[in-house]
Design a protein around this nucleic acid. Sequence first.
DNA 1: GTCTATAGCCCGATAGAC
DNA 2: GTCTATCGGGCTATAGAC
Lengths: 187, 187
Amino acid sequence: MNTAANKLIETTQELLWERGYVGTSPRAIQDRAGVGQGSMYHHFRSKAALAQAAEERSAARSIEEVERLFDTPQAPLRRVIAYLRLERDILKGCPIGRLTADPEVIADEALRLPLRDTFERIGAHVAALLKEAQAAGTLAPGLDADRLARTVLAVRQGAYVLARAANSSAPYVDAVEGLIALLDGQA
Amino acid sequence: MNTAANKLIETTQELLWERGYVGTSPRAIQDRAGVGQGSMYHHFRSKAALAQAAEERSAARSIEEVERLFDTPQAPLRRVIAYLRLERDILKGCPIGRLTADPEVIADEALRLPLRDTFERIGAHVAALLKEAQAAGTLAPGLDADRLARTVLAVRQGAYVLARAANSSAPYVDAVEGLIALLDGQA
DNA sequence: GTCTATAGCCCGATAGAC
DNA sequence: GTCTATCGGGCTATAGAC
């Protein structure tokens, strides 16, 4: 049955999001998943292997979410702005970005690459939209769209940091709206 | 003697930066500081108390660094850009922002407030400079300077996240330069 | 002030029964 | 596939000697 393995992955996704890699123990995963020790180690050789499976699923989910959001007939710059304004549980932060704080994740290629790839793929989508916006005359043509796409992603990631420090979503909204105002002023 | 307490604080600053709160054990602090168990618990009642002292020192250091940087005769917008371009060990990330990933830090007011205050104080400085720039005509007057200040801080924090995921400082530089291009286009 | 010893619990993983 | 038992070690803290 795949049901235990699946439950373990989902639970690990949750715990990695809430507590990070170092802060998540196999025991905690088993308890929340309602799966025994023997079962867990039957399906995954180690905590790292399970974490990798969980990361890959979270990464796929994030990328799909963005691709669904971008698949609309709206003007390209409007789609980027919609991405910045996407409804989120702001104080929970980003399930992907959160893991970059963890030195054990960054030191292990298998755990780091899903994070890098997620940002690269979303960044490529954003960059493509920004180039479309330039072609359509809604964004200044002198701007470097690839760079600017990274600015867009960075504002989201950093806005989570400010929100968590303040224990308030206000700084998140401000940071994002500040960028939108700059982008809109570039017509 | 204050020398043991001081050494403990400095070492804890380093370890919190490298490994976060959950990832830093009293044992690791003692070993690196060259201070015994008994000595540590004589000076600090708990890991949390020591972490708080370390945070407060890191916060003060960050604020001073920014205030020193801003205390120049340069044009206000140039000072904000200089802040964005400040030389940093990019892959190490931000010693303050890093801690927001830690749920135990966010759940404990004593550990969270130094983070919030750091961003608020630096944000206030940046906002003041942006308003000066608006008065001087180097930044569009219609922009909300307080919001935009948070965008500036968020780009820095988020740029660290992208850089660590990529194991490269390139995304950091891109994100920051993307914002600078937008700010410069607002003359 | 700093030392060593100890407490009680959790860590990540393995072994072998069922 | 899942169970329980066990391993060697680390966790945060306290106790009491020096």
